[in-house]
Design a protein around this nucleic acid. Structure first.
Lengths: 351, 351
DNA sequence: AGGTAGTGTGGGAGCGCTCCCACAAGTGAT
DNA sequence: ATCACTTGTGGGAGCGCTCCCACACTACCT
């Protein structure tokens, strides 16, 4: 059963040639069987498959990559330091969705952190060497040069979260506007009158859209938007604390807070607790992402859920389609494959 | 500055040959410069480096992998479904440590989930194809066949958390025994008299060692070990809940709980809360891992910290050493490179 | 002068595949 | 019987690199 081919440099692993000899066919024919070409007779296919099984043949991917100019690997590129990546549950969630979907394919997943200049440099080299067939990009800021580099190198890429309303790259995003809108609507329906918001970094398009949704929900309800109730955060817990402190100072009468992420909501919760405000009695709190911490918070946090699994699946599907599509990139770009998936408000005890 | 080499199949990227022509040297010489061989004169090196810069040359890794039989990539293999991986902060933490350390090298990181049979099959194929230079293994149960497969294929591997006291593979682990010991000591010092423990899955060696540490700490203090105070968990939150429920039923007088992981402690906390027990007044609670949820819990959880960053670094160092070492695996194995890193008790309000 | 190292260099061979051209054999219309 | 296709097959060429042998050239001894 085990491999017994001639000892070659690669440690005794059998080659195509050896399989061919064993099956009594040519090298090309074995290659066709391995790659599922239809132009092979049933008898030959069976013989080759038997030889493959007997020798325990596994194709050498380096050789394949060299000859066919593809790698069967994609990279998930995170233009942030690891610390940020893991502090923000959204990233892990995306990774989980992507991992789940990719498990169904033959593609391999590379995880690349490009959080500082040196690593960016290395990433550029890596991409220039075309070591992956495609790239998944998460957490891209408005002015990030990475997407342009990708376009220039003609490497298929899909972006998680658009950079602007007219994103050039194929993208998958959740409906941040509608999500924020529903959160604020919910707070209004609960009878809250002084609803504040803590925003994410506004150079992230999604954060901007959540703010837009907040504004629109108030306007739609005929309420004025009080700019003092809008506090800038940066998606971190510390940022949430700072923003909440400011809000409390500027508007002591605030009775509801919509935070642009669960992590910031956690920060806000701390400050509220320390200020002696009860949640939800004195101040209602709503987050965004519906990440694990929302369930663990005390009280459990009402939050806007994004369909992460589905987003992962969609990203992979889009990317694989891009990779399979061999028209020049310029022709592809025109199609504007932008997916926006719906969000859902998950109500818990905090509101 | 941009690449202007002859249009070859790989999309116009310059090859070694083109760089050689430009620099007026031979192919071998360019290869030597690229790979930092000392056997090159200063003048030649400078000329080659100029040509590389002018053409924007980047080595083709597929060709290199084929010729040199290495891939410059390592895999982090997780023999669990994605869901488990991300539910357990310990994994993310290891990944973070590994990512941070790997960022300093030229190696790339592949993330492979092998949580079901199909994926295991695929992983075996993948490893048989030697698509990575080495493997990092996390969360391996006592009876997992993966380490043996790795040994058989002679693929360098490092395991995170030993499988037993006499682990055959190089491994990095934290001192689970001492960590648990210190946690229980701490509870004793706080005057607790009825100290229970919730264990992890005992087919994970680390969980067993934590239980051993619990027992030893009690014995060392001259206290008897009451078997009813030992409740089996499985590292999940739900398992923590179940275990705590059992403990409360079996020993209503319990005044302290040492949980084998923070996640299980979170589960226990819920049950305690629902049962009307105050933390730490009625029952003191200590976790293990010092993960993010420990800080976010209410009250913040006292927990045993593992030096995750350092563990990631150590794993990478060990693995790179294994890869660089070209003695046969059988010679290496004898050295038993086992690292056990110290833990530290982080005291918070829960105890 | 002849020998013997050492140093730097060029380029052939070969890694294991895919691509594609050539060709044999079969099938059916003229 | 001839010509066209179609279907299945073999194997040459080539992907871009590393490895290593061969060879010039220098330097320093006898």
């Amino acid at each position: 059963m085990a491999a017994h081919g001639a000892r070659n440099r690669s440690g005794g692993r059998p080659t195509l040639e050896e399989v061919a000899a064993r099956a009594g066919v040519g090298r090309g024919t074995v290659s066709r069987v391995i790659n599922g070409s239809p132009r092979v007779s049933e008898a030959t296919r069976t013989a080759v498959e038997a030889a493959v099984a007997e020798l325990g043949y596994v194709p050498n991917t380096a050789a394949r990559a060299l000859a066919a100019n593809r790698t069967d690997a994609i990279a998930l590129v995170v233009p942030e330091p690891e610390t940020r990546f893991f502090a923000e549950p959204y990233f892990s969630d995306v990774l989980r969705g992507v991992g789940a979907e990719l498990g169904e394919t033959e593609m391999q997943l590379l995880l690349i952190f490009a959080g500082n200049d040196r690593r960016r440099q290395r990433l550029a080299q890596y991409l220039a060497a075309h070591r992956v067939d495609g790239v998944l990009l998460v957490s891209v800021h408005a002015d990030d040069p990475l997407p342009d580099l990708l376009a220039q190198l003609e490497i298929p890429a899909v972006i998680s979260g658009r950079r602007s309303a007219d994103e050039a790259l194929p993208s998958v995003d959740s409906d941040n506007f509608a999500g924020a809108h529903s959160a604020v609507e919910h707070l209004l329906a609960r009878g809250r009158t002084s609803i504040a918001t803590i925003t994410g970094r506004l150079d992230v398009y999604g954060a901007q859209r959540r703010l837009d949704g907040y504004r629109a929900a108030l306007s739609d309800a005929g309420r004025p938007v009080d700019e003092r109730l809008i506090a800038p955060g940066d998606f971190t817990e510390e940022g949430g604390r700072r923003a909440m402190t400011e809000l409390l100072a500027a508007c002591p009468g605030v009775d509801a807070v919509f935070a642009g992420s669960d992590v910031m909501a956690a920060g806000a919760r701390q400050v509220l607790r320390e200020a002696g405000r009860r949640i939800p009695d004195d101040v209602a709190l709503v987050g965004f992402d519906d990440s694990a911490i929302a369930r663990h918070m005390d009280p459990p946090l009402t939050s806007v859920r994004q369909p992460i699994e589905e987003m992962g699946r969609a990203m992979i599907d889009l990317l694989l389609a891009e990779i399979a599509d061999d028209r020049p990139a310029s022709a592809r770009r025109l199609e504007h494959r932008q997916l926006v998936l719906p969000t859902e408000l998950v109500e818990r005890a905090s509101s």
